[in-house]
Design a protein around this nucleic acid. Structure first.
Lengths: 155, 155
DNA sequence: GGAACCACCGAATCCTGTTCGATTTGATGC
DNA sequence: GCATCAAATCGAACAGGATTCGGTGGTTCC
C-alpha cells in the first residue's frame, strides 16, 4: 500500500462525510480533473483503503424503539469459546456491532430492538442461556452518536 | 411519515449494504423503473428515513493503530454535567462514537488512537482531568465488527 | 543529457440521472 | 356496478456525469 498524500486524505474525508458525492464534485473539491480523481479513487479501492459505503437510516422508521449495550463475561477465555460466541452473536439480527475487548468484560455488544420486551427475550434467549457466557450486564442507551469518519493521523 | 412498504424496505437494505449502487441498478433489483425508484428514494430522504451515506475506510491506512472503549462515570447526573461532557467528548478528534447509557457507567466512548502512548495521553488529558468525571475505565479493543445496516422489524 | 515513469489533463464517447406527461392502479363515494 | 379522484408507475427525451484514451509535463535514475 502506497502512503496517502494530502489529496487522498481529502478524498477519504469527503467520502466519509457523504459517500454519494459525484466524481465530478469530488474532483472539483480537491482541485483535480475528474479523470484523475477517478483514478485515485479506483486506486484507493484496489488497495483496500476504501472498503465500501453504507447508507444511514432512521432507526425509528424500521421499528427500532430502543437500543442497548450488553457487556458479556465468558466463563473461560479459550480461543474456541471466544470464536463460538463471536460467531453466534454476529448471526443475531438484533446485533449492530460487537467489540471483543480486554477489560472487565470480554465483549461489548450493541443491539437494537423493538421494545423492552424484545430486549428481555433477547438477553435471556441469546445470551444468558449460552454455555460459554458467565454473566451479562445490560445498559440501556439513552442517546448515541457516531461521528462519520475516522480521524486522520497522517495528513 | 408514511409507513414503509416491502419495496422501501428492500431499497433501504440495499443502500445500507452498498450506498454507491446506481439508481438504475437499484431499480432493477427491486423491479421498478428507474424513474419510480428515484421518486421513492427522494421521498425517503425528504421524510428523514434516509439520512445520508458514509464511506468505510481502513483504520490502519489513516495511522490508527489501536482502539478502545472508555467507560465514564460522572460525579453527578445533573443535566448540565451530562450536556457539558457530551459536548466536550464529541469535539475530540479521537472519538468515533459516544453512548449515553443507564447502567454501571454513564457514558461509553469509542476512541481511535495512534498507539498506547496516544491513548494514555488522551485518557489523562481529555477524560480524567475533566471536573465532571468521577472515574473512567478503559478497555482495549482486540477486534470489532459493525454490521452494515439495521434490522428491519417491519418488513 | 536522455529515457523511462508517473500523475495529470482534456476531449470524445458512452451511459446514467433526472424530468415530464401519459397511463395504470387502487380506493372512495354514489 | 360505475364514475371519480389520488397516488404510483412507466417510458421517452434531455441533460449531465462517468469513463476511456492519447498526449503532456515533471521527476527520477541511469
Amino acid at each position: 500500500m502506497k502512503t496517502l498524500d494530502q489529496v487522498d486524505g481529502a478524498l477519504l474525508e469527503l467520502l466519509q462525510k457523504d459517500a454519494r458525492l459525484s466524481n465530478k464534485e469530488l474532483a472539483a473539491r480537491v482541485g483535480l480533473a475528474p479523470s484523475s480523481c477517478l483514478a485515485r479513487i479506483q486506486r484507493l479501492k484496489a488497495e483496500g483503503v476504501l472498503r465500501g459505503a453504507h447508507a444511514e437510516v432512521d432507526p425509528a422508521a424500521l421499528g427500532i424503539g430502543l437500543q442497548a449495550l450488553i457487556a458479556v463475561q465468558l466463563r473461560q477465555h479459550s480461543r474456541a469459546q471466544v470464536k463460538a460466541f463471536w460467531k453466534h452473536v454476529l448471526a443475531l439480527p438484533e446485533v449492530l456491532a460487537v467489540h471483543h475487548v480486554a477489560g472487565a468484560a470480554d465483549f461489548q455488544v450493541h443491539v437494537a430492538v423493538r421494545d423492552a420486551h424484545h430486549l428481555r427475550d433477547l438477553a435471556l434467549d441469546a445470551f444468558t442461556t449460552r454455555p460459554e457466557v458467565a454473566h451479562i450486564q445490560t445498559s440501556l442507551i439513552f442517546e448515541w452518536v457516531r461521528k462519520p469518519g475516522l480521524p486522520n493521523y497522517r495528513g
